[in-house]
Amino acid sequence: MTSMNIQSVRETIADLLAERGQGTEFRDDESLFDSGRLDSIAAVNVLLALETEFGVDLSDPDFDVSRIDSLDEIKALLGATTS
């Protein structure tokens, strides 16, 4: 996991927030989906970005979107998946 990859995911999230007319600033521990800032379709875009940037397979049918609710949780998930 590189800081460049994480920066790319951060930019994807910022773009999704902008598309929904929201401010593009967010903290690493800030809730994105549970808070309602982003919806389920946006989650798919984040999942795609994670698969593209990190080459991980998050396609488990039981995968819960709440596991990528914040950038911190995304980092933790990627740490667990790639280790």
Binding site: D39, S40, I41, V44, L47, S59, D60, P61, F63, V65
Partner: peptide, 16 residues
């Protein structure tokens, strides 16, 4: 309604 369609149909298809 969009969330319902996403939760019951979009996600499962996308994941598989």
């Amino acid at each position: 309604f969009k969330e319902l369609l996403a939760d019951f149909f979009f996600y499962p298809a996308f994941q598989r």
